[in-house]
Computed example of a mutant assay.
Amino acid sequence: MKNMVVKRNRKNAGLTGIETAIILIAFVIVAAVFSFAVLNTGFQSTQKAQEVMKSGMEHAASALELDGGIIISSQGGVLKTMNFTVRLSPGKNPVSFDPAFLSVAVTTPTYSRPNVYRDYSTTDDGCYVSPSIGIRACAFKILDAGAPGFLEHGDRFLIVVRWNGTSVALGPNVPVVIEIKPSTGNVLTINRLLPLVLDGVQYLG
């Protein structure tokens, strides 16, 4: 009888050890899966944060910058054109001058046009502006060694803004704000006050 009790106790002890091992193994597996899920989520969150920071930095800095000063032309005391050259900012990706990816806004004390940009051209075709349109902006090639219509490092594009004096006449001492808005990067803002006397071709700096 005593031997049977000892055997039964030994048998129960063996089963308890196996069950405990199984439970421990289950805990280890669950902990490993949980740790992997936590680490994976952390890596994804870090990657997403880096992408957001990179995108924010790209949009915070302007992709375009002026290359030289502003030149205007007038006739009869009325502004006709405003010309300036732009280049790509250091470290920025190429900017498309396709009208689908770029706009030019003009603001004066009397009116505001959200987009007067027409198109990019390799030659100056006149960028015709009719009285019904009033204002037109075009981009022309000065240096464009890469893909046509893409402002890349080393390229220079001339931006010409033309006014039709009959419908949107601008006289002396009037502030003009021009905003060039590419699809990527911050806005390039040009703010100039027209001279007290408009006479022919003038340099505004």
Rank of each mutant, 00 (worst) to 15 (best):
A63S: 13
L64Y: 06
L66G: 10
G68I: 11
G68N: 12
I72A: 01
S73R: 09
Q75E: 08
G76F: 03
V78D: 04
M82V: 12
F84P: 07
P90H: 04
N93A: 04
D98G: 09
D98K: 03
D98L: 09
F101W: 04
L102D: 02
S103E: 06
V104Y: 06
A105F: 11
V106N: 14
T108N: 12
P109L: 02
S112E: 12
S112N: 12
P114R: 06
N115D: 15
N115Q: 11
V116W: 07
D119A: 14
S121R: 13
D124Y: 10
D124Q: 02
D125E: 14
D125L: 14
G126A: 12
C127H: 04
V129I: 12
V129F: 05
P131W: 02
S132P: 00
S132N: 07
I133N: 05
I135Y: 03
R136G: 06
F140Q: 10
F140D: 08
D144H: 05
A145Y: 07
F150H: 08
F150N: 14
F157Q: 04
L158M: 15
I159Q: 03
I159G: 03
I159Y: 01
V160K: 15
W163M: 12
A169R: 13
G171D: 10
N173C: 00
N173R: 06
N173M: 05
V174N: 13
P175S: 05
E179R: 15
I180M: 08
K181D: 03
P182I: 01
P182K: 01
T184L: 03
V187N: 10
I190K: 12
N191L: 03
P195C: 02
P195L: 04
L196A: 09
V197P: 01
V201P: 09
Y203T: 11
